[in-house]
Amino acid sequence: MSRPDVNGVETYFYSSAAGRELSAYLLDSLLEATGMNNRGVKEARFFVLRRTNMPASLVELGFVTGAEDAPRLADSNFRELLAKAVARGILQYIVDTF
């Protein structure tokens, strides 16, 4: 593992308040469900975030090179937990925003 010290969850948005808010909802849901290291909500110019007409977030669900994250990510039950946390974050954002 080239970067075993890098572990945790982080979300990215690009320039919009709505994208920042969606990213915060997703991060909060993931942290609540997993207890993973909080790497924060960050702004970035990723193409997949810039080229949208709606709130967008890119989610890092851990790092396969991380000493803590790698074994978790190898577990299908943990991956399902992550997927459900992402879904809950999106649904809560919709309920609270619209």
Rank of each mutant, 00 (worst) to 15 (best):
V41M: 07
G66N: 10
P55M: 06
I90S: 11
S23T: 05
F63L: 15
R50F: 02
R79T: 14
L49T: 03
R72N: 03
S29C: 04
R50D: 08
A85F: 05
G35E: 00
D28K: 03
S23Q: 05
R45D: 13
G62Q: 01
G35C: 01
T65R: 13
M54D: 08
E21V: 03
A67K: 15
L22Q: 03
L26R: 04
E60S: 12
L49M: 00
S29G: 06
R79M: 12
M36A: 15
G19A: 07
A44S: 13
A70Y: 13
A83P: 15
A33K: 06
L30D: 00
G40R: 03
P71L: 08
D75F: 04
V48Y: 01
N38D: 15
R39Y: 08
T34C: 06
A24T: 03
A33V: 02
G89F: 02
S29A: 11
T34W: 01
L27T: 01
L26F: 08
R79G: 14
R45A: 13
R45N: 09
R72W: 00
V48N: 07
R79D: 11
F63S: 14
R39D: 09
N37Y: 05
A83T: 14
F47H: 13
L58C: 06
N37M: 01
V64T: 15
L73D: 11
M36V: 01
F46M: 09
S23H: 05
A18N: 03
T34F: 02
L61T: 11
R79K: 15
R72E: 00
Q92A: 10
F46W: 05
G62L: 00
M54N: 12
F63M: 14
L49D: 05
F47D: 06
L61F: 10
F47G: 07
V95R: 12
T65N: 14
N53V: 06
I94F: 10
R79N: 12
R51L: 06
A74M: 14
L81P: 08
R45I: 04
R45C: 06
L30T: 02
E32G: 05
N37A: 06
R45F: 00
Y93W: 15
E60H: 08
A70V: 13
A33C: 09
E80Y: 09
A33N: 02
E60N: 12
F78R: 02
Q92N: 14
P55I: 08
V86M: 12
L61D: 11
L58P: 04
T34K: 03
Y25W: 07
A74S: 15
R20P: 02
L81A: 07
S76M: 09
G62F: 01
A56D: 08
R39I: 09
R72Q: 05
A56M: 01
A44G: 14
L31C: 02
D69M: 09
A83Q: 12
V86S: 11
L26E: 07
G66F: 08
